[in-house]
């Protein structure tokens, strides 16, 4: 099987017509390929996130990660950019949808695209993946331990985030949720609430929840990494995308 791939930094059109930086990895075979928008975590558009982007390409998907901090910190290192974005209250929801929408359009317009597109996000990106799936026409979405899809941020919380439960009726595609049972944001109770809300609205979804895992169990460069949970999670992702995004 021909397995060559290419990965590179490109520029795409994001919210408001802004040109923003993005990292693209794509198989070099003829396709057709599904497209995955990878939404990076709070610590930013960093090297581990780019590894995830390449992983999707190695599995036959065109994957694109927009740098959500392009505007605050063009050219800055990922950690400095993340600190700047954090100090300004994070990424506004409207802008996130515009940036992810631009990435989706880019992927669907690629010559080898099969016309299908999905989102996956980690940490804050998990919530943003859900938000994108409620705001854009997608074929699949994955929420990896995103907080405040349901539940209200505590007083003094520095980010401009609002719960998204009211958007459940707008969810445009099947949702895969992957959560650690030792996580506090989202807590197991909040995952229960989201699960019930999706079921009540008749929205197709599958949740997998892992004992012994907390927040960020996919993050291979952090002490939160839980290999068993992450390996099972990746297997669930391949199955889910195989059913909804491939071909």
């Amino acid at each position: 099987m021909y397995d060559a791939m290419m990965a590179e930094t490109i520029s795409i059109t994001g919210h408001g017509g802004d040109r923003i930086e993005a990292y693209l990895a794509r198989p070099l075979g003829p396709g057709p390929h599904g497209g995955v928008v990878v939404i990076h975590h709070m610590p930013g558009y960093d090297a581990p996130t780019k590894e995830i982007v390449r992983r999707f390409a190695a599995h036959g998907y065109a994957a694109l990660c927009p740098n959500l901090y392009s505007r605050e910190a063009p050219g800055a290192s990922p950690d400095d950019a993340a600190a700047t974005a954090r100090a300004r209250g994070g990424v506004p929801d409207e802008r996130l949808v515009g940036d992810v929408g631009g990435a989706v359009e880019y992927l669907r317009a690629m010559p080898a695209s099969n016309g299908k597109a999905a989102t996956i996000g980690y940490c804050s990106g998990g919530r943003q993946s859900f938000l994108a799936a409620c705001s854009l026409r997608l074929d699949a979405a994955v929420d990896c331990y995103g907080a405040f899809v349901v539940g209200t941020p505590p007083d003094g919380y520095p980010l401009q985030v609002r719960p998204l439960a009211h958007l459940i009726p707008e969810l445009s595609c099947p949702l895969l949720g992957l959560f650690g049972n030792e996580d506090k944001y989202p807590s197991p109770e909040q995952v229960d609430e989201l699960d019930k809300g999706l079921t009540a609205a008749g929205k197709p979804h599958e949740f997998h929840r892992y004992d012994g895992a907390g927040h960020a169990f996919f993050a291979v460069d952090r002490p939160s990494y839980r290999p068993e949970s992450a390996n099972d999670g990746w297997a669930r992702i391949w199955d889910f995308f195989g059913a909804h995004l491939a071909g």
Binding site: M42, R86, A87, C123, A147, Y157, P158, L159, Y185
Partner: peptide, 9 residues
């Protein structure tokens, strides 16, 4: 999401 109260001075 993984962030808590920020003190700014």
């Amino acid at each position: 999401m993984c962030t808590y109260l920020t003190e700014k001075i």
